[in-house]
Design a protein around this nucleic acid. Structure first.
Lengths: 170, 170
DNA sequence: TTTGACAGTTCGATTTTAGAACTGTAAAGA
DNA sequence: TCTTTACAGTTCTAAAATCGAACTGTCAAA
C-alpha cells in the first residue's frame, strides 16, 4: 500500500489518515491550534527539520487544511492559517489530548487545561450521539456498509473463521 | 526530537502521538475496532509487511493498548484484544472517521454508517463540553497551563512577536 | 509424506528522515 | 558602508525506517 493510495480507499478513516496520519503533521496541527502561524514559529516550537516542515506545510495546503496567506511583500512572507476544513479537525485534536490526559499523565497532572468560554468551566470533551445525545462507546455502535462502500462488503474486516478449534484448544 | 522522547513531553497530545501517531498503528487500531484479532487477519486486511506488523503489535501491547491472549496451545497462538485503555481510543477513531465522512467522501457517499444501538439511528459523533453539554469548537475554548505544565509556560506556543511590521506591509 | 494454516523472523533494496549548511531578500545597527 | 539578524525556505549526505520476499517452526488434515 503506497501512501497516496490511502486517500483512494473506501474508508473515511484511511483517507483521513492519509492527510493527518503522521507524527509531524499532527504536531504541526497542534501548533496551529495554539495559534502558531509562521515557518519559524513551527520550526522552533517543534524542532522539526526545516526540510520536513516545508514539505508538510505544502501538503497541508494542497489538501486544503491550511491556507497560505501573504502578510508582507518584499521579501514575500506567508502565514499558514487553518481553513474551515482544518478547524474541523478540532474534535480529533481534543480527543487525542483527552486520551493523553486520561492515560498518559504523570503524577504532576495535566499539562494543559481547557476552559469553555460559554460556561466558564474547565471541561473534558465528551463524544455523544448526534441523534439522542447519549455518550458513545464502541460496544454500543454497530457499523454497516454505506453507499460509498465497495462491493466486497465491510471494507476489509478480517475473514476470520469462527474459532473452529481444529487443534486441542488452550 | 527522537520519537521515544515524545512520551516525556509535557503535552498530552505529544504523548498520545507517541503511542498511536503513525499510519500503520492507526490502521491496525481501525481493524481492532472492526473485530480483527489475529496476526494473519491484520496482515491480509492491511497489506502491511509482516515485519512491521509484528513490531507495531508488540509496541501496542507494551503500551497497554492491546493485550496478547493465548487462544490455543501447541502451537502457541495468540489474539490481540483491546484493553480498556485501547477501547478508550474510540472517540479518537470516531472523530477521525467523521472528519473523513465530512471532507473526504467521493460522490458515492460514506463507506460506512454507524448505528447507535441505544436509539437505533444512524448517527454522527458530536463532541460536547462535559460541564454544560454544548457542542465544542476551537474558538470557544481557552487553554491554560495545568499542574503538569513545565515552568516555561504554555508548553511551546510560538514566541511570535505581535506582527510589528518592520517592513512595508502587504 | 505432502500441503496448508498460522505467527512470526531475517535480510537486501528502497524510501524517509535527520542534521547541518547554504540561498536570498531586506531591515537594523556599528 | 559593512555586518548582523530575521525570515522562509532549499540542498546535500548520513542514518533510520519501511518494503518485499523468502525463510522458520509447529501442528493438523489430506
Amino acid at each position: 500500500m503506497r501512501w497516496d493510495a490511502l486517500e483512494e480507499e473506501p474508508c473515511s478513516m484511511a483517507r483521513t489518515i492519509g492527510v493527518i496520519g503522521d507524527r509531524w503533521t499532527l504536531l504541526i496541527l497542534r501548533e496551529c491550534f495554539l495559534r502558531t502561524r509562521r515557518f519559524e514559529g513551527f520550526q522552533s516550537a517543534l524542532g522539526i527539520t526545516r526540510h520536513l516542515l516545508a514539505e508538510r506545510l505544502k501538503k497541508l495546503v494542497r489538501q486544503g487544511v491550511l491556507r497560505r496567506i501573504p502578510y508582507q511583500e518584499s521579501p514575500k512572507r506567508h502565514e499558514y492559517i487553518l481553513t474551515q476544513k482544518g478547524l474541523d479537525l478540532y474534535p480529533i485534536m481534543m480527543a487525542i489530548v483527552h486520551w493523553g490526559d486520561t492515560h498518559m499523565v504523570d503524577v504532576r497532572g495535566r499539562p494543559l487545561l481547557h476552559q469553555h468560554r460559554k460556561c466558564g468551566k474547565n471541561f473534558d470533551p465528551v463524544m455523544v450521539c448526534s441523534e439522542c445525545g447519549e455518550p458513545l462507546s464502541a460496544k454500543e455502535v454497530h457499523t454497516h456498509p454505506g453507499p460509498g462502500a465497495r462491493s466486497t462488503p465491510p471494507a476489509k474486516a478480517a475473514p476470520e473463521k469462527k474459532a473452529k478449534p481444529r487443534r486441542k484448544a488452550a
